[in-house]
Nucleic acid binder design. Structure first.
Length: 648
RNA sequence: GCUGGCGUAGCUCAACUGGUAGAGCAGCUGAUUUGUAAUCAGCAGGUUGGGGGUUCGAGUCCCUUCGCCAGCUCCA
């Protein structure tokens, strides 16, 4: 044991202090400014408090407010302050866990009466009081025995405590009246918190287990800088304004109806137009990429799902069976068995492979009522589903083709994206070797292509590993995008075959892939991405023609006819004042307003006002206007703020 | 499914502790003929999500059921 602390800093220099010195001491030794700005430290890769005594040779980095790694420390401390406040105002409250999360923090409490929104405000005020007291966070190592005594009245903490191994370090943190079993680290004192807010309250199962009791969770968020907190709250506001349920109503795109059934979507004409354009685009795209289109029935004999294994692995998500002449039928939850049946309609030679079969297939899945959410989580949805039947040797090529396809598709909508490789889940079919093999195939192809990716452990489908593409929308949120799943299981279950070069029978592999995934979810996501302002090619109404007065309606009518004749979705809006009609068009987010008055009618021109551009208008010849819009549609141009990023 | 909250006109929302359901927008009709984000007037619109109960009286209180919302759990 050394009596010295040798701290190696990121710049390579070394600070020597007496053993037992803390990261805070190191910061002070470097400079008073840093000592003041320090929040926590990273010692040998582990984030620790400034007050933790250190010794020996360590690599040390001081975290300041500017460091992204410091934010979770602050938020975790905020969770403790919240618990401090709750314990003061609700003395008997049991405490569960209170971690920092991506967007903030939460703390779970066991209470007789759930929290009310008014109570949140009182907690917030009490937290402010705790912060004003500037209580230091004190860390203490304790034995299991000591901990048992300290938390004698905290059943939840005791339960957690018993999971500690004999030689694990157990620590508690104390600030003012509050003591928590906690690994830390924390900011030096509660006074470091200034910009925090409590956001919501909701039930949450203890330990995330729906068989256990439900606790009351309080969510909040915290930042070092007031500006960051304000921006975060503004982002939440912005997200609210973009909510696809709200915009879907305002723009008359889609709805659901309790009489039709929850989670079953009604596509109104305008929403259907958007969907149709997406489908047309995708159809064109995949035909170009070597796919063939198929159709399969919505209701299928249950026998098919016995073979596929869906009944065994997916039954809790399937609609119930219906009896038809003694046979049991099910609405299909997936399209793959149907496509396989098409594959098996005749024999295949290796020369036929790969076979790429695509369908906009509507599937029905039973989702528990509490999970339904607008268009994003529904019970009936249409997948742009495709299955590639190929040999093992062709997989790599097929993945490469898919990467290209996905790229073209996502950049068209103006989505940057990231890639994740999802590996074997707990509940899975097939041998470990097959899984390892398949995961390696996907990873190798990605690496060969130079596509960066992250690994999602255990996130695969039950029949094979998958590549998940995550879209990043206009306000930086991630969405589930295309997925590609490798499947060696269904070919086995169905006994798929092809005749090889050697005249022997071989088993093909299958790739399942979707691009938009669910049409419903994708359109819902697009609405939020574009904030309802669709690019011209997708806009349900592309041009609204506005005569200045009734006198020019005839001229306006001929413009509408001309545009419609060219396949442009144009509509005439007469009556009312021009201002009122402009306002209406803006509110409906029609991309072009075409004004026709005396000057335009006589010159054969049109005054073109672009959505969101205010009074800036351009006078154009009518054919020129028509051709410009046609070109915009043809190229599927995006509004400037969504310009395609060809780097992906 | 679970915890909590919410369901009033097509939409957004009012209606004190139980005492005659109301407004704006949208719609319809008429007037106005308008040059770039709301012209004026009139009319119509409701078994207050459904069912049951308490009460002289229920939008309001209770029970039940359906749906929606925030999360949890689960997922495209």
């Amino acid at each position: 044991m050394s009596d010295l602390l040798r701290a190696k800093l990121p710049d390579g220099s070394v600070k020597e202090l007496p053993a037992g010195s803390t990261a805070g001491d190191v910061a002070a030794a470097i400079g008073p400014g840093l000592a003041k700005a320090a929040v926590a430290a990273v010692v040998d890769g582990e984030t620790v408090d400034l007050v933790r005594p250190l010794e020996g040779e360590v690599e040390l980095r001081i975290l300041t407010e500017r460091d992204p790694d410091a934010l979770p420390v602050l938020r975790h401390s905020a969770a403790h302050v919240l618990a401090t406040a709750v314990r003061t105002l609700r003395p008997g409250a049991g405490i569960g866990f209170g971690p920092a999360i991506d967007e903030g923090f939460y703390y779970d409490f066991e209470v007789e009466k759930p929290f009310t929104p008014e109570e949140l405000e009182r907690f917030q005020s009490e937290m402010e009081r705790v912060v004003a007291e500037d209580q230091p966070f004190r860390r203490r190592r304790v034995t299991k025995e000591e901990a048992r005594e300290l938390f004698a009245d905290d059943a939840l903490k005791l339960e957690r405590l018993e999971e500690f191994g004999a030689d694990e370090v157990i620590t508690v943190y104390e600030n003012g009246p509050f003591l928590d079993l906690c690994r830390g680290p924390h900011v030096p004192s509660t006074g470091r918190l200034s910009n925090f807010t409590l956001l919501s309250t909701a039930g949450a199962y203890w330990r995330g287990d729906e068989r256990r009791q439900m606790l009351q969770r309080i969510y909040g968020t915290a930042f070092f800088k007031e500006k960051d907190l304000q921006e975060h709250l503004e982002r939440l506001e912005e997200a609210k304004k973009r909510d696809h349920r709200l915009l879907g109503k305002q723009l008359d795109l889609y709805s659901t109806d309790a009489r039709v059934g929850p989670g079953l979507v009604l596509w109104h004409p305008k929403g259907a137009t958007v969907r149709m354009e997406i489908e047309n685009f995708e159809r064109e795209l995949i035909l170009r990429h070597g796919y063939e289109l198929v159709y399969t029935p919505h209701v299928v004999s249950e026998r098919l799902f016995e073979i596929s294994g869906h009944l065994e692995n997916f039954a809790e998500n399937m609609f119930g069976a219906m009896d038809v002449e003694g046979g049991r039928y099910r609405p299909k939850p997936m399209n793959c068995p149907g496509h396989i049946a098409i594959y098996q309609a005749h024999q295949h030679s290796y020369r036929d492979l790969p076979i790429r079969m695509a369908e906009f297939g509507t599937v029905y899945r039973y989702e528990r009522s509490g999970v339904l959410h607008g268009m994003l989580r529904v019970r009936g949805f249409t997948q742009d589903d495709a299955h590639v039947f190929c040999t093992r040797g062709q997989v790599s090529d097929e993945i490469v083709r898919l990467l290209d396809l996905v790229h073209e598709m996502l950049t068209t909508f103006g989505y940057p994206y990231t890639v994740e490789l999802a590996t074997k889940p707990e509940k899975a079919l097939g041998s470990d070797e097959d899984w390892d093999d398949a995961e390696a195939m996907l990873a190798d192809t990605l690496r060969a292509r130079g596509v960066p990716y992250e690994v999602d452990e255990g996130g695969g489908a039950f029949y094979g590993p998958k590549l998940d593409f995550k879209l990043i929308d206009a306000i930086g949120r991630k969405w589930q995008g295309p997925t590609v799943q490798l499947d060696f299981n269904l070919p086995e279950r169905f006994g798929l075959e092809f005749v090889g070069e050697d005249n022997e029978r071989h088993r093909p592999l299958m790739l399942h892939r979707v691009l938009v995934g669910s049409m419903e979810r994708f359109v819902g996501g697009l609405v939020e991405h574009y904030a309802g302002a669709f690019p011209v090619w997708l806009a349900p109404e592309q041009v609204r023609v506005l005569p200045i007065s009734e006198q020019w309606e005839e001229s306006a009518r001929s413009l509408v006819a001309d545009l419609k004749g060219a396949g442009i979705r144009a509509a005439l809006h007469g009556r009312d004042t021009l201002s009122a009609r402009i306002r209406d068009a803006e509110l409906h987010k029609v991309p072009y307003m075409a004004v026709v008055g005396e000057r335009e009618a006589q010159a054969g021109t049109v005054a073109v006002r672009r959505r969101g551009a205010g009074r800036k208008q351009v006078i154009m010849d009518r054919p020129e206007f028509r051709e410009q819009i046609l070109e915009e549609i043809r190229s599927r141009a995006l509004d400037p703020e969504f310009q395609r990023n060809e780097e992906g």
